[in-house]
Amino acid sequence: MARSLPGVTVQLLPFPAADYAAWRAAQVERRRRWQFTPLWADDAAATAQAREAVDELAPAEGLSGTQLLRVLDSDGDDGWVWLMRQERDLLVLDAESDAPPDRLLALLEAHARAASATALILDRMVAAPTTAALAAQGGFTVVSQTMALDLADAVDTEDGPPVTLRPMTDASFAAYLDAAVDEYAREIRSTDHVAWGEALDHSRKDYEDLLPQGRASAGHVLLDVVESQAGARVGALWLEVRPPSAAFAYDVYLQPDWRGRGLGRAAVGAAARWCRGEGVRVLGLSVFGRNAAARALYDSLGFTVVVEALRRPVEPAPPVAGPR
């Protein structure tokens, strides 16, 4: 596919199979450096995660599966883009190109339009320069962000009401799961614009996949958040410990009646202290783009964005006028 734009002609062509092995090795290194090292705090663990991610998504020998395409401009070879079709969207998994970002974005939108996609999604590592340049063109909204907190540098604050953490009981886990599945389904429905039944099924499956043995699932820690003065259970904290020195907060949940009182900040602070006590060096989490309050909270606590998904609608091609 080619589009002629003033001053530059940019094309997307099949990626040469002879260059695939080198691209694959470079992609593993990019993922290790920019995605997994900030979230795992250990080079060996980050490398293993990067290889697994590339193994899962990379096209076989550069010829099938997800699309790996070469970028050509008027001066010749100018990099590559890695794409994947997902339902109604075209995902840009990664890209590296010196082509003018406005030209490259226009070409990607044309590619999405030709594939009948309704949106272009940048699934970008924020440190990657080409996807940063594409995002800077504007028109994107944040779908989700994955953030990390370096616990060695984070300020140990106890702002807000004091909270304590205690292991969930069967009863408190059941109550948390019912509320969390429902809330997550609502986020899915709002973000993906799907029917309620589909969103609820998706939510239940995600929880079942991540917690196959409930609160006894290996590697997962499920804690009640208790407001210390009243002694009331006000929420929940769900962590996955990632050896040797990382943890990921799948959920920091507060019951609706207890929100807006500073307890979210206190719960995250308690989670950070718990992690330090377990020898954890970095705490990661993900947040929906629509949740502006949570994003602002995590930013104020020193979390930095590692990976984010950005969405840009793709306008359909105008209808071709028929003969008169």
Rank of each mutant, 00 (worst) to 15 (best):
L151V: 06
V126I: 14
P161I: 10
R103K: 11
D150R: 08
S172A: 08
V71D: 02
A152M: 08
A128N: 15
M168H: 13
D77C: 00
S116A: 15
L177E: 15
P101F: 04
T146I: 12
E183R: 11
D123W: 08
A171C: 02
D150F: 07
E198I: 12
L151P: 07
A135W: 09
W82I: 01
L177C: 04
T164G: 14
R113D: 01
A136N: 05
E183G: 13
P161N: 10
L134C: 08
P161W: 08
W80S: 00
A128H: 15
S203Q: 04
E87D: 15
L134I: 10
D206Y: 11
A185S: 12
G197Y: 06
A133T: 06
A136F: 09
Q137L: 09
A152C: 08
G79S: 06
V181M: 07
E208S: 12
P101H: 03
D102P: 06
A154E: 07
Q145S: 13
R113F: 04
Q137P: 02
V163D: 10
L105K: 02
A135D: 07
T141Y: 08
S172E: 03
D201G: 07
A135R: 13
L149F: 08
A185N: 06
L90F: 00
P167W: 07
D123G: 00
T191A: 14
A135G: 14
S74Y: 04
A114H: 11
D156W: 07
A106W: 05
A132I: 11
L177T: 06
E87H: 15
A112V: 00
Q213I: 00
D209Q: 10
R189H: 09
A175M: 03
V71N: 03
V126E: 08
A148S: 15
D123N: 14
H111M: 06
A119W: 04
A175G: 12
L151W: 08
Y184G: 04
R85V: 11
R113K: 09
T157W: 06
A133K: 12
L120K: 03
A112T: 05
E183Q: 13
T118G: 14
W196T: 14
V92P: 02
Q213T: 02
A132H: 09
M84H: 10
V163H: 05
T131C: 11
P101R: 04
E158F: 07
D192H: 11
R186G: 13
D153A: 13
S172V: 07
V181G: 03
Y176M: 15
D94Q: 06
D89A: 15
M84L: 10
K205A: 11
L91Y: 12
V181C: 12
W80Y: 14
V181L: 08
G138R: 05
G138C: 09
I188M: 03
H202K: 09
A152P: 04
T191S: 15
L72I: 14
T118P: 02
D75C: 00
S116H: 15
L200W: 10
D77T: 00
A136E: 07
A199Q: 05
A133H: 09
L134T: 10
D178A: 15
L91P: 01
D94P: 05
A216T: 00
W80R: 00
D73P: 01
L91F: 05
V71I: 01
